[in-house]
Design a protein around this nucleic acid. Sequence first.
DNA 1: AAGTGGTCTAGACCACAAA
DNA 2: TTGTGGTCTAGACCACTTG
Lengths: 243, 243
Amino acid sequence: MSESRAGSGGQGRVGGNLTWQAVRAEAIRRIREREWMPGSRIPDEAELAAELGCARATVNRALRDLAAEGYLERRRKGGTRVPETPVRKATFEIAVIRQDVEARGHRHGYRLLGDETGAAPDEIASALGLPKGTPLRHVRALHLADDAPFCLEIRWLNPELVPPERAVFDALSANEWLLRNLAYSAGSFGFSARTADAELAALMACPEGAALLAMDRTTFMDAVPITAATLIYREGYRLATTM
Amino acid sequence: MSESRAGSGGQGRVGGNLTWQAVRAEAIRRIREREWMPGSRIPDEAELAAELGCARATVNRALRDLAAEGYLERRRKGGTRVPETPVRKATFEIAVIRQDVEARGHRHGYRLLGDETGAAPDEIASALGLPKGTPLRHVRALHLADDAPFCLEIRWLNPELVPPERAVFDALSANEWLLRNLAYSAGSFGFSARTADAELAALMACPEGAALLAMDRTTFMDAVPITAATLIYREGYRLATTM
DNA sequence: AAGTGGTCTAGACCACAAA
DNA sequence: TTGTGGTCTAGACCACTTG
């Protein structure tokens, strides 16, 4: 999705060569001004290249980028179409919690709450594709921002990949250890809202009944489960990104 | 990033040519196995191309893809590095609410709750970069899934771009009208949790005090504000994606 | 069967930022 | 200044899918 978007001066011609950003901009213009109607097929790459006066590869780069952003749909032999109702894509940056805290101008603190290995709850095991009752390492920790609770980290770990002897989370959080030591290859995550029960309220220093943002993730390395985690953020937390 | 990830049989050689996916896979392997250490610089494109036996453009495509995913950091003249603490990127698909409902196997329903134009609250005006008191169109609507409340849409609209005469939201939601009619070029969005007050509880048919997931967005077309919106989802809603 | 996008190559020039 | 990534070109072959 359109990285630097720099080019020679920004866009347009460079002595006769159109940049892919310029092609992209022209395509967006045509979509926005209904020159290319929703649902209709647009000219193929070779045609556009000839019309715009650039190489087909340049057109390809631009249209591929737009397809990744949801502006276009492309299929071999089927051609390129403007979607009836576009599904726009937005990118989130999943940073380490410590960095998140520091980026907000706070001092990061960390407290390990618990770390034991035992049979995983059924829902966790199934989310990781493991048989019921598989032993997993269960870690709970609290991240602080200027000494105030910021994020509760609740996690189940594959003990074979993250053995208690090798990976100690007294000072460095599992969140950070994993990101540094295990490059995951696949996974999923989601957002939901959760009501603070008495225990949560005590931990997060918020009123019982408060609404907290929860983010859950599962990650795998080549189909081998690494971890299932839930991160519960302090009251009022907002996770944001730009498009 | 990394679209189809197909290639000739998946990856690897095609009679002597490495695909960019194969180069990508090899790079990930070297990162994961610490052949390329975190923080260190990796060989430049020309070197890798020679080593792997492919064109530099192929290496470029692979490494550019990895950089977009957060696996690598690239800078001109600075070379390509493995980040100390990677910031992984994940992509969300922002679909029309109706499609979201239907994708979950429900029948979508819609009820317009209100539509008036008046001075915007200060916080809304400032989020859109408008002077205090700018008149905006204020629309509220409820989306239903099988007749049960699914999502409350609260929105402020730029009346010049979305005039009440031209854009009527009796049957088609503003959500869908906008996506169909105004391609936005920039914006931001965020997630947070919100407690249901009495009014919200009544609208969403949930207990007062329930935790609801809220998503807020602002969108612009070439720096011209289009809309600021808050979508409040039913209790228990989870917005998910994969990486 | 054939059309369209997906990708590779080899060579070239340029922009940017580090040395 | 100069090394490294960013991009363009022209030509080629291939893969997927639709007719």
